[in-house]
């Protein structure tokens, strides 16, 4: 009986998640476009469409909703906007050509930094104490005794 109740609960949870996902579907498609494109208002507000509240942004959203209803895909709509306004209408660089450097550079820098730090740490470690030096942890008579002595040490320092 309990097993049946458990299965039922899991099924209900899955149904809830599936329901949430499907209701969010249509809005999510428009949101994909809104996230990918900038607002094109005359004030040059510099905001991504999804973040913009000006009247131009509202009209643009309505225009894209119509385009989606007419059967155009997200990619087709985005490409049409790029053809019309140029690359600047995109909210982030494309992942091709020179723009690829925008995406790659932070990770290249991170990798280079990581490599540099690992080399530095190794060189510092060579200067440091040998690896097999006893730190006392494994040799401690018991965990609680070791911990208590550490706390006692700290408290001594605090209260000295």
């Amino acid at each position: 009986m309990k097993t049946h109740q458990g299965i039922l609960a899991i099924l209900l949870a899955l149904a809830l998640v599936a329901g949430l996902a499907s209701s969010a579907g249509a809005a999510a498609v428009l949101a994909d476009i809104e996230n990918a494109l900038m607002c094109k208002c005359d004030d040059k507000c510099g905001k991504v469409l999804i973040n913009c509240t000006c009247s131009t942004a509202d009209k643009t959203r309505a225009e894209y909703t119509k385009m989606l209803d007419s059967g155009l895909t997200v990619d087709q709509i985005i490409n049409m906007q790029v053809d019309k306004y140029g690359e600047t209408v995109l909210s982030s660089p494309t992942k091709s050509g020179f723009n690829l450097t925008a995406w790659a550079m932070p990770f290249v820098a991170l990798l280079a930094g990581g490599f540099g730090i690992s080399k530095i740490m190794e060189s510092w470690k060579r200067k440091g104490a040998p690896e097999d030096q006893d730190t006392g942890d494994e040799e401690a008579p018991s965990k609680s005794a070791k911990y208590s002595s550490r706390i006692q040490e700290e408290l001594d320092k605090i209260e000295s």
């Binding site: 996230n35 990918a36 900038m38 991504v48 973040n51 140029g86 690359e87 600047t88 209408v89 995109l90 909210s91 982030s92 660089p93 723009n99 925008a102 995406w103």
Partner: peptide, 10 residues
């Protein structure tokens, strides 16, 4: 010679 936008998705 192309001005692009780098926004939240990036």
């Amino acid at each position: 010679g192309v001005k692009i936008t780098v926004g939240p998705p990036f």
